[in-house]
Amino acid sequence: MKAPPFTLHRPATVDEAAGLLAALADEGALVLAGGQSLVPMMALRLAYPPDLIDINGIAGLDRIELSGDHLAIGALARHHDFRRSVVPGPFGALLARISHEIAHYPIRTRGTFCGSLAHADPASEWCLTAATLGAEMVLRSQAGERAVPVADWFEGAMATVREPEELLVEVRLSRPAEGSAWGFYEFNRRAGDFAIGAALAGYRLEGGAMRDVHVGIGAIEEVPRRLGEVEAALEGQPPGPEAFRTAARIAAGAVEPLEDFATPADYRRDLAVTAIERALAEAALAQPGQRGMAA
């Protein structure tokens, strides 16, 4: 379990990194961020990058800043940086809540938000967050900068539209609607494991009815996504266990679950329903005036 030989490059600026990528990406060069996914793959000799472009020395990439309708998250913002609210109110509380579900403490201190989006593991909590709240991925290469909305980002499990010579410099995570409240649920075998199924759900109350309903699932399908059918069933309804259950059940017919040797598709189909129901129930507890992730 020793990594194959590689050359380590340590650019000091984004431009320098983009230059290295332009020169070396065709040969298989990879960006090294937190290394929590890439380095194990190298040790297992599942990845053989001849060049690693380590972005950890680039100043300013660790920023997390609220800017208008979104939170700008730089390429070196670590999972652990979200452990306490990075912005006041329910948004920061939600990100803190989710960050604790990711892996184990030492991994959280290294792994990055943007690395998770670049890596695109189907079970990634941040990918689910981006898919559910809405986000834009800002890519930089020598050719310039482009922004990709999350709906266009994922191409499949561990695959995105990012070109090999592009650096993901920032993710712009949409700020949830004023007054909305959120709930998150994931099921895994042990504390710190990747989720087998997860859901993130939120809405705001207007005259006793749910509005701006967001329901996303992760780890169930190849890529995390919002479930429009479930959201539509909830929109305009008063919240409550019955409404949640009825809507969540729609997911069973709407998802195309992943399968693996330990987990049949039926199990994930059930789990999608359960996770949505429980995320909604947590959101209900978090409505303004209640304890939880709402202002």
């Binding site: 075998r189 330990a262 987990t263 199990y267 059930d270």
Partner: peptide, 11 residues
């Protein structure tokens, strides 16, 4: 016995 198997038995 895994959760997947317990769940299948319950189902």
């Amino acid at each position: 016995v895994s959760p997947q198997e317990v769940r299948a038995a319950i189902r």
